[in-house]
Amino acid sequence: MYRPNVTVAMVLKSGDRYLMVQERDKLSGEVVFNQPAGHLEENESLLQACTRELYEETGITAAPLGLVGIYSLQAKNGVHYLRFCFYGELEQCLEPKPQDADIMTCHWLTHEEIQSLALRSELVRQCIDDSQSRPLIPLSHLSYQVG
């Protein structure tokens, strides 16, 4: 049976800067930038996955304020990803301390700085743009049930 890979991402903003992680693309070997993001794990809600991935990749704890959108991507590696992108804000840029060995480093960057970067996919830029140009979907629209 066909099942897309479910991923979560967090657009985290402080002032005019966005938190970006720098990592090596496992397919191409290129160094790319992404939002803190990763896969939904078994017995985990989307919100739990989002906050866990944010912490693992940056060492920062922050709660999402809303859902930016749900995105479908047929990636270059042949995998279909269903991405749930969340949005959060911090009053100040906290110093990131990645817990995940796959993250090379983290940066707080302006929208303009992000435009010239090699991105993991075009969804990275689209999620940032969408977070600023459309209303957030309330978290109350998400439901997680066990059993």
Results as ranks from 00 to 15, higher is better:
Trp108Asn: 04
Ser14His: 12
Trp108Met: 06
Ile128Cys: 01
Gln126His: 12
Leu73Val: 14
Gly88Cys: 09
Glu91Cys: 10
Leu90Val: 04
Tyr2Lys: 09
Leu27Ala: 10
Thr61Glu: 11
Val32Met: 05
Asp102Ile: 09
Ala75Leu: 06
Ile114Asp: 03
Val21Trp: 01
Gly78Asp: 04
Pro64Tyr: 02
Gln35Lys: 06
Tyr144Met: 12
Tyr55Glu: 10
Leu142Gly: 06
Lys26Trp: 07
Gly147Ala: 15
Arg24Ala: 13
Arg52Glu: 06
Val21Pro: 01
Asn77Thr: 10
Trp108Arg: 04
Gln22Phe: 04
Ser28Met: 07
Arg52Ile: 03
Tyr55Trp: 15
Asp25Thr: 06
Leu142Cys: 14
Thr7His: 03
Met1Trp: 09
Val31Asp: 07
Asp25Trp: 05
Arg134Lys: 15
Ser121Trp: 02
His141Asn: 14
Phe84Arg: 02
Glu95Lys: 10
Ser143Gly: 12
Met10Glu: 02
Leu46Val: 06
Ala63Arg: 12
Ser140Lys: 14
Met20Cys: 11
Ile103Gly: 00
Lys97Asn: 13
His107Ala: 08
Asp130Ser: 12
Met20Gly: 04
Ile137Ser: 08
Met10Thr: 05
Asn5Tyr: 11
Glu44Ser: 05
Pro138Leu: 07
Glu30Ile: 05
Glu57Pro: 07
Pro64Arg: 04
Arg83Asp: 09
Leu67Val: 12
Asn5Thr: 13
Phe84Pro: 01
Gly69Arg: 02
Ala101Asp: 14
Glu44Pro: 01
Met104Ala: 08
Pro64Gln: 09
Leu119Cys: 07
Cys85Ser: 14
Gly88Thr: 05
Thr58Met: 02
Leu136Glu: 12
Gln48Phe: 02
Gly88Lys: 02
Pro36Ala: 14
Leu65Glu: 15
Tyr71Trp: 07
Gln74Ser: 13
Ser131Gly: 08
Asn5Arg: 15
Ala62Arg: 00
Arg83Ala: 12
Ala9Gly: 13
Gln126Asn: 11
Gln132Asp: 13
Glu23Lys: 00
Tyr144Cys: 13
Trp108Gly: 05
Arg125Pro: 03
Thr58Lys: 01
Asp16Gln: 11
Gln145Pro: 04
Glu23Leu: 13
Val21Thr: 13
Gly38Ile: 00
Arg125His: 08
Val79Glu: 10
Ser133Asp: 10
Asp130Ala: 14
Glu91Tyr: 07
Pro96Asp: 04
Glu113Met: 09
Asp16Ser: 15
Leu12Tyr: 01
Arg17His: 15
Val124Met: 10
Pro64Val: 03
Ile137His: 10
Gln99Ile: 06
Val6Ile: 15
Leu109Asp: 05
Gly29Leu: 13
Gly29Arg: 11
His111Met: 11
Ser131Lys: 03
Cys93Lys: 14
Ser45Arg: 03
Pro98Arg: 01
Gly78Leu: 06
Ile70Trp: 05
Cys106Asp: 01
Glu95Leu: 10
Ile70Val: 14
Leu54Cys: 05
His141Glu: 15
Leu19Ala: 02
Pro98Gly: 03
Val79Trp: 09
Phe86Cys: 04
Glu30Tyr: 08
Leu123Ile: 12
Val68Glu: 02
Glu112His: 13
Leu46Ser: 03
Leu46Asp: 02
Ile70His: 08
Glu122Ile: 07
Glu122Cys: 11
Ile114Ala: 08
Phe84Asp: 00
Leu65Cys: 11
Gln22Thr: 12
Thr7Pro: 00
Val11Trp: 01
Cys93Thr: 15
Gln74Trp: 10
Phe86Ile: 05
His141Thr: 14
